[in-house]
Amino acid sequence: KTYTFRVRIVDEETGEEKEIEVTAKSEEEAKKAAEELKKKYPNLKVELE
Rank of each mutant, 00 (worst) to 15 (best):
K1L: 10
K1R: 11
K1A: 10
K1D: 11
K1E: 09
T2G: 07
T2E: 12
T2H: 10
T2N: 11
Y3N: 04
Y3P: 03
Y3R: 05
Y3H: 08
Y3A: 04
Y3W: 10
Y3K: 05
T4F: 07
T4Y: 09
T4N: 06
T4V: 13
T4S: 09
T4H: 07
T4D: 03
T4G: 04
F5Q: 01
F5W: 12
F5P: 00
F5I: 14
F5N: 00
F5T: 01
F5D: 00
R6D: 01
R6I: 15
R6F: 13
R6E: 02
R6K: 14
R6L: 14
R6H: 10
V7D: 00
V7N: 00
V7C: 04
V7H: 00
V7I: 15
R8N: 07
R8K: 14
R8D: 02
R8S: 06
R8G: 03
R8A: 04
I9C: 07
I9Q: 00
I9E: 00
I9K: 00
I9M: 08
I9T: 03
I9W: 14
I9D: 00
V10R: 12
V10C: 06
V10T: 12
V10H: 07
D11C: 07
D11F: 03
D11Y: 02
D11T: 02
D11S: 03
D11H: 03
D11G: 00
E12W: 07
E12T: 12
E12M: 14
E12D: 08
E12I: 13
E12L: 12
E12C: 14
E12S: 09
E13C: 12
E13I: 12
E13S: 12
E13M: 10
E13P: 01
T14R: 02
T14Q: 01
T14Y: 01
T14G: 02
T14H: 02
T14M: 02
T14E: 01
G15E: 01
G15Q: 03
G15K: 03
G15T: 01
G15C: 04
G15P: 00
G15A: 02
E16L: 08
E16A: 07
E16H: 05
E16T: 07
E16S: 05
E16I: 08
E16C: 13
E17F: 14
E17G: 04
E17Q: 10
E17K: 05
K18L: 14
K18N: 08
K18M: 14
K18H: 14
K18G: 04
K18A: 07
K18Y: 15
K18T: 14
K18P: 00
E19H: 14
E19A: 08
E19N: 09
E19L: 15
E19W: 15
E19P: 01
E19Y: 15
E19I: 15
I20D: 00
I20N: 00
I20F: 12
I20H: 02
I20Q: 01
E21Y: 15
E21D: 06
E21T: 13
E21R: 07
V22M: 08
V22T: 02
V22S: 01
V22D: 00
V22K: 00
V22I: 15
T23C: 10
T23E: 12
T23R: 09
T23A: 06
T23M: 12
T23S: 10
T23W: 13
A24W: 05
A24Y: 12
A24D: 01
A24F: 14
K25D: 12
K25G: 13
K25A: 14
S26H: 04
S26D: 10
S26R: 01
S26G: 05
S26L: 01
S26M: 00
E27D: 04
E27V: 12
E27G: 05
E27P: 12
E27H: 13
E27K: 09
E28S: 08
E28K: 08
E28Y: 09
E28C: 09
E28R: 06
E29H: 05
E29N: 03
E29Y: 03
E29L: 05
E29I: 04
E29K: 02
E29S: 04
E29M: 06
E29A: 08
A30S: 02
A30G: 04
A30N: 01
A30H: 00
A30F: 11
K31E: 08
K31Q: 11
K31Y: 13
K31H: 12
K31S: 07
K32V: 10
K32H: 11
K32T: 09
K32A: 13
K32N: 11
K32C: 09
K32Y: 11
K32Q: 11
K32M: 12
K32I: 13
A33I: 15
A33K: 14
A33G: 04
A33Y: 15
A33W: 15
A33D: 02
A34P: 01
A34D: 00
A34V: 15
A34C: 14
A34G: 04
A34R: 07
E35R: 06
E35Y: 07
E35F: 08
E35M: 11
E35D: 10
E35C: 09
E35T: 06
E35N: 08
E36K: 07
E36V: 09
E36F: 09
E36P: 01
E36A: 10
L37K: 01
L37D: 01
L37P: 00
L37W: 08
L37F: 07
L37I: 13
L37G: 01
L37V: 05
L37A: 02
K38M: 14
K38L: 11
K38D: 02
K38A: 12
K38I: 12
K38S: 11
K38N: 05
K39L: 11
K39D: 05
K39N: 08
K39F: 08
K39A: 10
K39M: 09
K39Y: 06
K39G: 06
K40W: 07
K40M: 13
K40H: 07
K40G: 04
K40A: 09
K40F: 07
Y41R: 03
Y41E: 02
Y41N: 04
Y41V: 02
Y41H: 05
Y41C: 05
Y41F: 08
P42L: 04
P42F: 04
P42Q: 05
P42R: 01
P42H: 05
P42S: 05
N43D: 07
N43R: 02
N43V: 04
N43Q: 07
N43F: 09
L44S: 11
L44W: 13
L44D: 03
L44H: 14
L44T: 05
L44E: 03
L44Y: 12
K45V: 10
K45M: 08
K45H: 09
V46E: 03
V46W: 11
V46R: 00
V46S: 04
V46C: 10
V46T: 04
E47V: 15
E47P: 04
E47Y: 15
E47Q: 11
E47R: 04
E47A: 06
E47N: 07
E47H: 07
L48Y: 13
L48C: 12
L48Q: 05
L48D: 05
L48I: 13
L48S: 06
L48A: 06
L48T: 06
E49I: 15
E49T: 13
E49F: 07
E49H: 12
E49Q: 15
E49C: 08
E49D: 12
